[in-house]
Simulated assay, not measured.
Amino acid sequence: MIRVLLFVPLLLPLNACAATQSSDGPSLAKRAVEGRFDVAPPAVVVAPPGPLPTDLAGRLERWEADGAAGQQAFAAQRTAAASLVAAAAGAPVAGERWVVAQQAISRLIAARAPLTAALADIDRLYLDRSVDEQIDGLPDIYALRDRLADLVSTQDAVIEALSAGLPGG
């Protein structure tokens, strides 16, 4: 008998909810005024970027030349660094061969400095022009930035592989 009394209060609120679900409430059908805003927004015409401004063309050429110089210097140091790292494969950490290999990796990193500096400068230019909404020449700037970033990424992978080849690396 006690069980029946516990469930009775739960049924009463449900009956009250069901009683309010009558058909005299507002209709949920679409009203005529609701369709007024079903129109496409007007097209916004954005002018495409113009050509690279002449004051930037010289800077981009210099950065491209710096990137090429950094790549050539890196390539010239790479073979020597790889052979020194291979020679230090069994050497103890902080031993002479290990130190010589670390120095070769450091020279390899230093050799690419013109490339990384050019990438930093072109990143700064790209961001400044984007913030100032000066879009003329951005495709040219971004294309050079993309090429330099690819070179740096490839060099990073080489340096990481060489560092991993050293004991303790």
Results as ranks from 00 to 15, higher is better:
S27P: 04
R31F: 03
D150Y: 05
A40S: 06
A76D: 13
L166A: 05
W98F: 12
L162S: 01
L12H: 01
L115P: 07
L115D: 01
A89I: 06
A57E: 10
L6T: 09
P13V: 13
T154K: 11
D136E: 07
E34Q: 12
Q102R: 15
P167M: 04
D150T: 15
I141L: 04
A47R: 10
P26H: 07
S27K: 11
I105M: 07
L108Y: 06
A43N: 02
F7W: 15
V152M: 05
G169V: 04
A57K: 09
A73Q: 14
V152E: 11
L11C: 13
P167G: 08
Q72E: 14
G95F: 04
S106H: 10
P26I: 08
R147E: 05
G25M: 11
G169K: 05
S22Y: 01
Q71F: 09
D150Q: 15
V100H: 03
V46T: 13
A75M: 11
A94N: 15
V158R: 01
D38H: 04
A19V: 13
L60P: 02
G50I: 11
L144N: 00
V131M: 07
R62H: 05
W98Q: 02
E96P: 14
V46H: 03
A16K: 10
A111W: 09
I105K: 02
W63D: 01
F74Q: 06
R107F: 12
D150S: 15
A43P: 08
A161H: 03
A81R: 05
L151F: 10
R107K: 12
A91C: 03
A32W: 03
L10M: 14
V85F: 03
V45E: 08
A40H: 02
V33E: 09
V33I: 10
T154H: 06
S22F: 07
F37P: 00
G168K: 02
S23P: 07
A113F: 09
V99F: 01
D132E: 11
E64I: 00
I2F: 03
A75S: 13
A104E: 01
T154S: 14
A101G: 04
C17D: 08
G58T: 06
S23M: 12
G67Y: 01
A73C: 02
L10N: 00
P9D: 06
A110R: 12
D146P: 00
A120C: 02
Q71W: 08
R145K: 15
G165M: 06
A19S: 10
P42D: 10
I141N: 00
V131W: 00
A117H: 08
V46N: 04
A69C: 01
L108W: 05
L12E: 01
S27T: 14
T79V: 14
D132Q: 13
D146Y: 12
V33T: 04
A86E: 10
A110P: 09
I122N: 06
A76H: 02
A16Q: 13
A29P: 00
L162G: 04
L127R: 12
L162V: 05
R62T: 13
R147T: 04
E133T: 08
R124L: 14
L12S: 01
P9W: 07
L10I: 15
E160R: 14
A101P: 04
E160M: 08
D128W: 01
V44D: 00
V44L: 14
A104V: 10
L12V: 15
A76I: 02
Q71G: 05
T154D: 11
A75H: 03
P13R: 03
